[in-house]
């Protein structure tokens, strides 16, 4: 065996695996982020039925509740995705703190977006929001007057509280920034970058982020302005 081969194989023996590698973790974040992104789009479309009146929305909710397979399938998938996504995020954050123990006295950004630099803020805020959101509209503990099954009513009464509405608006802005970077970044993480398509991905990311923020934010705003009651 040649000297070089010894060296190479010596390395491979203790080479960390896929998950132990930041690139592997990032790929997992990209895939799970993509799934979550798909979900938030679907979720928004569902939510927007609020504009069609209580019957439509409640019927939609009931349909979901009845199709147990779909419901639990989705819940398990989403939970798995969130766990993987969040675990990776926290582990990578730990690595990053170790990688730069001493901070700069002065640091200026030379060419990155605000959204991209704040992924590690927008993410955890989203996590907090997701928990609150589940306790607000799914389980009800965080809702002042929760009525199981009466989705339309819960939404309207929920958003009549200004702090709750504000929390939703802030959270949606966070989701917007998270995805403004996330939607093109996930392509990069799995190795897709092309001078022709990447600018398109970036545009797509901006448009999708705006649509999501606009669509979701419109609901509490509509409630607070009395458009929906």
């Amino acid at each position: 065996m040649s000297a070089a081969a010894t060296a190479l194989t010596g390395k491979s023996a203790d080479r960390p695996g896929f998950w132990a590698n930041p690139i592997g973790k990032k790929a997992v974040m990209a895939v799970t982020g993509f799934v979550l992104f798909g979900f938030v789009i679907g979720h928004m479309v569902g939510n927007l039925q609020v504009y069609l009146g209580p019957e439509k929305l409640d019927a939609y909710a009931e349909f979901l509740q009845k199709t147990k397979g779909l419901l639990w399938g989705a819940r398990i998938t989403l939970l798995t995705c969130v766990i993987l996504h969040v675990t990776a995020a926290f582990q990578l954050a730990g690595l990053q703190n170790k990688a730069r123990p001493q901070k700069y006295v002065k640091k200026t950004s030379a060419g990155s977006s605000y959204a991209s630099r704040t992924m590690y803020w927008s993410g955890p805020i989203l996590l907090a929001f997701i928990i609150y959101h589940l306790m607000h509209f799914t389980t009800g503990q965080a809702h002042p007057d929760f009525q199981p099954g009466m989705v339309y009513r819960n939404v309207v009464t929920g958003f009549q509280s200004v702090p709750a509405s504000l929390a939703y608006i802030v959270a949606m802005l966070m989701l917007g920034t998270h995805l403004y970077h996330g939607i093109w970044s996930m392509f990069q993480s799995v190795g897709i970058n092309h001078p022709k398509y990447t600018p398109l991905f970036k545009k797509l990311a901006a448009v999708m982020a705006a649509v999501l923020v606009g669509g979701n934010v419109s609901i509490p705003v509509a409630v607070m302005t009395g458009l929906i009651r």
């Binding site: 491979s12 960390p16 690139i23 973790k25 730069r100 950004s109 993480s189």
Partner: peptide
């Protein structure tokens, strides 16, 4: 690719967030 990435991990470089700085 495997070996260089593994070596970088050992050196305590951080991970990439694709931000472009």
């Amino acid at each position: 690719a495997l070996n260089m990435v593994a070596a970088a991990n050992e050196e305590l470089f951080g991970s990439c967030t694709n931000i472009g700085e």
